[in-house]
Nucleic acid binder design. Structure first.
Length: 330
DNA sequence: AACCCGTGGAT
DNA sequence: TATCCAAGGGT
């Protein structure tokens, strides 16, 4: 594209954004870098609707500042993240807040304004660093996430480009006079018009210059993924109407409370049902067994109301639900 | 570079 | 119901 064509496209984008942009997103209406940073992390691989309706406001109410976040116990942060998934994000958020508190030496902690400093912080990759720089600090840099990626693939007929290539296109197109509006507009166009399936090219401000408008769904090529099934036996240790839960230590669902799997359930257990849960890379099928103990054999036992205070993953929530359903039918 | 890491919206 | 995939990052 020539410079003239790029300028024309930027003008179209700007005009479209003024009329159709999503102007009610709270992280667009604040200047607080911490709020913008939090939204960017929450929105990683997560839809706007989920963050907006269930997580953004409660989290900020509980942790209004970087200082409040870093000073809080990690388990409280995880509890506010419960159900949002990719829990490493919560851990890295907490770690980053603590790092910045340390660097502030008693003053109020602040986020760095430069991309090369932002990207050193855990949980901030190239895109999030660019997003914070553009949205919180008005720097003339592009973002390059799922929406922008799809638009670029269609504009320039890219089937499976690498990120380096995509960043080159993104830098060429960004409106350096209006990086905030430009980037927000690109994400809105991707989220509302340039959809993965059945994009509405007739409504798109970039239709004239788009090379992929004839067969947009061919760009980019979608990769199929197969989801292997894993079977597990879950043995509930029950003592005095309380359940034994442990805090996970591995990479998967790290630090969340839940039930451990066993090779073989002990004798004197009762099969109370099955629970399935589909993750991105595998499907879990759990056979759940109840084991009633006459004296405590595990470390921690929790009543139902005590469990509600712990951060628990969705599959363990399903197991608890099955257990409650079982005992209510007795 | 390929794989791991969660959950739910949308169709 | 099954499938895709979302404001990605870490390893």
């Amino acid at each position: 594209m020539t410079d003239r064509e790029i300028s024309a496209a930027q003008l179209k984008i700007k005009e479209w954004y003024a009329r159709y942009g999503r102007d009610n997103l709270p992280w667009r209406m604040t200047d607080d870098p911490y709020h913008i940073y939090l939204s960017e992390v929450m929105l990683q691989q997560t839809q706007v609707k989920t963050v907006l309706e269930r997580y953004y406001f409660p989290f900020l109410k509980k942790f209004p500042t970087l200082k409040a976040l870093g000073d809080a116990p990690l388990d409280e942060v995880l509890k506010m993240w419960e159900g949002l998934g990719y829990y490493n994000r919560a851990r890295n958020l907490h770690k980053t807040a603590q790092t910045l508190i340390g660097q502030a030496q008693g003053a109020a902690p602040t986020l760095p304004t430069e991309i090369d400093e932002l990207i050193k912080l855990p949980g901030i990759g190239k895109n999030t660093a660019h997003a914070v720089a553009a949205f919180a600090f008005k720097q003339p840099v592009p973002v390059m996430e799922a929406n922008v990626k799809r638009i670029l693939c269609r504009l320039f007929l890219l089937k499976s480009p690498n990120d380096k290539h995509l960043w080159e296109y993104a830098y060429r197109l960004v409106d350096k006079n209006n990086p905030f509006d430009y980037n927000q507009a690109m994400m809105d166009i991707g989220a509302t018009i340039c959809l993965p399936k059945k994009p509405e090219c007739g409504e798109c401000p970039l239709e004239e210059i788009c090379n992929g408008k004839k067969d947009p769904e061919h760009y980019p090529v979608k990769k199929s993924r197969k989801v292997p099934v894993r079977e597990q036996n879950i043995q509930l240790h029950i003592y005095d109407d309380k359940l034994s839960l442990t805090q996970r230590t591995g990479k998967f669902l790290h630090r969340l409370w839940g039930f451990e799997s066993v090779e073989m359930p002990q004798c004197a257990t009762r099969h109370i049902g099955m629970v399935t849960h589909t993750y991105t890379h595998f499907k879990l099928v759990c056979n759940v067994f109840a084991y009633y103990e006459t004296e405590p054999e595990q470390e921690h036992y929790f009543s139902v109301s005590e469990i509600k205070k712990l951060a628990i993953s969705k599959v363990d929530e399903k197991i608890i639900k099955l257990y409650l359903h079982t005992i209510s039918g007795e």
